[in-house]
């Protein structure tokens, strides 16, 4: 198949058609920050943090395919400013008090804040009040820490096939639910496999009884699983 010629951060790169900008960048050792993307799951472009500059247009690199002659900037002033604002909005939307969070030190949202140099949030916090659901015997969800990345929804649907997690409502009141928005512990479709725990990038879904030091997640197990399944 004919390779496409793209330019990323000034570097000319030959890319296979059908790949996303993010894939091509990663194959070539160029890092783009991401949050909702996870190897092994379908990309949905939920978080917008992986935006790149097409010089005239900003697009999410996890859902945009490379095209011949594309010029891509992954670290321009513009994208950096936008990424930071998006991240601040994510923080302001939830109640992310890291020092009280079970995932403190093992949180992808926190890592992004460090990586993007976010030292303050310039928009007012919304202090929304969300439901904590600790009815499951082994796991719990604190929706205050949910960034609506949809990883739990996708892993439960695409990898586990249980379809327990879904989104309900819309706009500012969107949240993740289990089954008919019943307590997780009574959700009949949940197999208690724990995949949603491993992929949740924040402290929203966590193991019960785990201390902060124990609460380390393994989101890369999804890529591992899907690769092994493909191999049969």
């Amino acid at each position: 198949m004919d390779k496409l010629r793209v330019k990323i951060d000034g570097r000319t790169i030959l890319a296979a058609p059908g790949k996303t900008i993010l894939e091509v960048a990663e194959e070539n050792g160029i890092h783009i920050p991401t949050l909702c993307h996870l190897d092994g799951l379908r990309d949905v472009g939920a978080c917008r943090l992986c935006i790149v500059d097409l010089y005239g247009q900003l697009v999410t690199s996890c859902t945009t395919k490379v095209a011949d002659g594309m010029e891509i900037g992954t670290q321009t002033e513009t994208v950096r400013a936008y990424r930071r604002t998006i991240l601040e909005l994510l923080f302001a939307e939830g109640n992310h008090v890291c020092s009280f969070c079970v995932s403190n030190g093992g949180c992808e949202l926190q890592d992004l804040a460090c990586e993007l140099g976010m030292h303050s949030v310039r928009v007012p916090y919304t202090y929304r009040r969300e439901r904590v659901d600790a009815t499951h015997p082994r796991f719990l969800i604190d929706r205050d820490r949910c960034v609506l990345c949809g990883r739990c929804v996708r892993v439960c649907q695409e990898v586990e096939g249980a379809h327990t997690w879904g989104f309900a409502e819309r706009g500012a009141t969107v949240r993740v639910i289990t089954d008919l928005a019943v307590p997780w512990g009574t959700a009949e479709s949940c197999t208690s496999c724990g995949k949603c725990v491993e992929v949740c990038p924040t402290g929203a879904i966590a193991r019960k009884g785990a201390s902060n030091a124990e609460m380390r997640k393994h989101p890369d197990l999804v890529a591992e699983l899907t690769e092994r399944r493909a191999r049969g």
């Binding site: 379809h163 879904g166 409502e169 819309r170 639910i177 008919l180 009949e188």
Partner: peptide
């Protein structure tokens, strides 16, 4: 259909 999808549409 998954329960969560039904609820999702009913609340959307």
């Amino acid at each position: 259909l998954p329960l969560c999808d039904v609820r999702g549409v009913a609340t959307f």
